[in-house]
C-alpha cells in the first residue's frame, strides 16, 4: 500500500473548527481498521497540536501521512515560535492568555501529553517564524 497524505488548515482563534481536523483524522484511521489504542493516542496528539496553533500562532496546518508501517502527524505553524523549548516541554508551563485559560486551555499539559502519546516526538521552532511538531505512531505492517 502506498502512502496517503492529507492536509488540514488551522486558523488562529478559530475555536469553532478547532478539533475537526483531528476528528476527520480519527475517522480516516477507523476506516483503515487502525487499532483503537493507536487511534486514541493520535487523537490526543492531533487535538493538542491544533489547540496550540489556535491559541499561539497566526495560522498553520496539520498533516496526516500514512505509510505502510506508521502514521505521521506533522503540525506546522507560522507564529511567534518558542524561545525556550525545554521550558515549553515542562508540565504546567504555559504562555496562554487568560481568556484561553478561562476556557480550560493553557494548563501547560499539551506538549507533554503529545510527547507521552507519540512513539516518536520532534519539535523545532524558530522565534518570530514558527514551530513544527512531528509525531510518529508505529502501526506495524498494514
Amino acid at each position: 500500500m502506498g502512502s496517503l497524505v492529507k492536509i488540514f488548515p488551522i486558523k488562529h482563534r478559530d475555536f469553532i473548527h478547532a478539533g475537526k481536523p483531528s476528528i476527520e483524522i480519527k475517522n480516516i484511521l477507523k476506516t483503515l481498521n487502525t487499532p483503537r489504542e493507536i487511534i486514541r493516542r493520535v487523537a490526543v496528539c492531533g487535538y493538542e497540536g491544533e489547540m496550540n496553533v489556535v491559541m499561539h500562532a497566526r495560522n498553520g496546518q496539520i498533516r496526516l501521512e500514512l505509510s505502510n508501517t506508521m502514521i505521521i502527524i506533522k503540525i506546522t505553524d507560522k507564529g511567534p515560535g518558542i524561545p525556550d523549548i525545554d521550558q515549553a516541554m515542562e508540565k504546567g508551563f504555559s504562555t496562554a492568555l487568560d481568556e484561553f485559560r478561562e476556557m480550560g486551555f493553557g494548563a501547560g499539559m499539551g506538549l507533554p501529553n503529545m510527547k507521552k502519546n507519540a512513539d516518536r516526538f520532534e519539535i523545532r521552532s524558530t522565534p518570530e517564524k514558527g514551530t513544527t511538531v512531528r509525531m510518529e505512531f508505529a502501526t506495524g505492517e498494514r
Partner: peptide, 10 residues
C-alpha cells in the same frame, strides 16, 4: 464553549 463537543467526539 463550542470546543467541548470536539473533545467529546474525540
Amino acid at each position: 464553549h463550542q470546543n467541548i463537543v470536539a473533545v467529546a467526539v474525540l
